[in-house]
Simulated scan of single mutants.
Amino acid sequence: MTSLICVVLILCTASITVAQSDYLPVVLWHGMGDSCCNPSTMGRIKNLIQEQHNGTYVVSIMIGNSIIADEESSFLGNANDQVAFVCEKLQADPELSGGYHAIGFSQGGQFLRAVAQRCPSPPMVNFATLGSQHQGVFGFPTCDNFTEPFCEDLRLVLSQGAYLPGLQNHVIQAQYWHDPLDEAGYRQGNIFLPDINQENTINESYKQNLLALENLILVLFLQDITVIPRESSWFGFYKPGQDIELQTLQESVLYTEDRLGLKALDEAGKLHFLTSDGGHMHYTDEWFIENILPYLT
Rank of each mutant, 00 (worst) to 15 (best):
T2M: 00
T2R: 09
V8S: 04
L11I: 06
I16H: 04
G31Y: 06
G33Y: 13
S35C: 13
S35K: 06
R44Q: 06
Q50C: 12
G55C: 11
S66F: 12
E71R: 13
L76H: 03
N80L: 07
D81W: 01
E88F: 05
Y100R: 08
G104S: 02
F105M: 08
F105E: 02
A116H: 05
P123A: 13
V125L: 03
F127H: 03
A128H: 02
A128P: 04
G131L: 05
G131H: 03
C143N: 02
T147R: 15
P149D: 11
P149V: 09
C151S: 10
A162M: 11
G166L: 14
A174H: 03
A174S: 06
Y176K: 07
D179Q: 09
G185K: 12
Y186R: 06
R187F: 07
I196D: 03
N200R: 09
T201G: 09
T201H: 04
E204I: 14
E204K: 15
I217L: 04
I217G: 04
L220T: 08
L222E: 13
V227C: 14
I228W: 07
R230M: 13
S232V: 07
F237L: 06
D243E: 15
E251R: 00
E257M: 11
L265N: 05
E267L: 09
K270I: 09
H272C: 03
L274S: 12
D277Q: 12
M281T: 10
H282N: 13
D285Q: 07
E286P: 10
E286L: 10
F288Y: 03
I289Y: 06
E290H: 13
Y295C: 00
